[in-house]
Design a protein around this nucleic acid. Sequence first.
DNA 1: ATGAGTGCAAAGGCTTTGCATTAGG
DNA 2: CCTAATGCAAAGCCTTTGCACTCAT
Lengths: 149, 149
Amino acid sequence: MTGIDVHAEVSVLLRVAGQRYTPTRRQIIDALMSTRRPMTITDLLEALPDVAQSSLYRNLTTLEQGGVVSRVVSTGDTGRYELSEQLAGHHHHLVCSQCGAMRDVVIPESLETTLDDAFARVAKREGFRLEHHRLDLIGVCGECRNAQD
Amino acid sequence: MTGIDVHAEVSVLLRVAGQRYTPTRRQIIDALMSTRRPMTITDLLEALPDVAQSSLYRNLTTLEQGGVVSRVVSTGDTGRYELSEQLAGHHHHLVCSQCGAMRDVVIPESLETTLDDAFARVAKREGFRLEHHRLDLIGVCGECRNAQD
DNA sequence: ATGAGTGCAAAGGCTTTGCATTAGG
DNA sequence: CCTAATGCAAAGCCTTTGCACTCAT
């Protein structure tokens, strides 16, 4: 998806949610689009030095409620955000157990289908209405592997 | 795995880590064994009313470093802990998107094998040394479904 | 003009740390 | 005895909130 498409889509999503697409929000989206990994609050503050911390938090909340971004659960002590899957596509994460870095990763479509089928059965068995799944691959990233040599 | 086995195993793990298996730590393990879901700090404090909050945090850290318990990443604002997979066996979690509750769930062994194979390939492609995977099924639990009727 | 968005500072809430006391080997 | 573990209280850190100001419609 190109940047223009994303901005147009965000604009629609926010309008539906009764929210404006302000310059600050556009900057946040630009920052999130610029990388293939969830960004921490710190990352975002560094990328947007003119945005107050409180504004960042408030905008992220607004964007999340509008379905534009998603809060990513991570091991770290600070929150992480990414574009919602509606905008970025379905994906998973590689998580480095040493440095904590996260990176997006896509698994074969056939495997996703297998997973969806199996999970649907498990959810039914457990009396659970399944919405989606979250899958992280934990290991050691290339940089940390090199650093150990 | 029976309770006796778990305590014996914990004792060994802690000894290897150079740590003692104190009464407080045994109480924590008993609490974690009593339920099939990760417990929050609040849960544990309620289950162990005579244990100071700081002791709980410190013991959980010690137990985690010894490989006895695992910190579970969750959406909530407070930490969650469970017995390590070495003690509790490999499993995943059902996470309720409405009430935040988590519950253990096991998926078919054949699916785990399929996942492991596929993930190994993905990790290799990405220059990642895979350690394990984390899989959550997000949806609405039975209680919340009933509450909506 | 009228409500939303912003910045700054203060307050909140979970977690960690300091320090004196107690228990275990 | 000597180190580890505990309790209580204080400090830290990320996040949220209050309030006045500015911007957009």
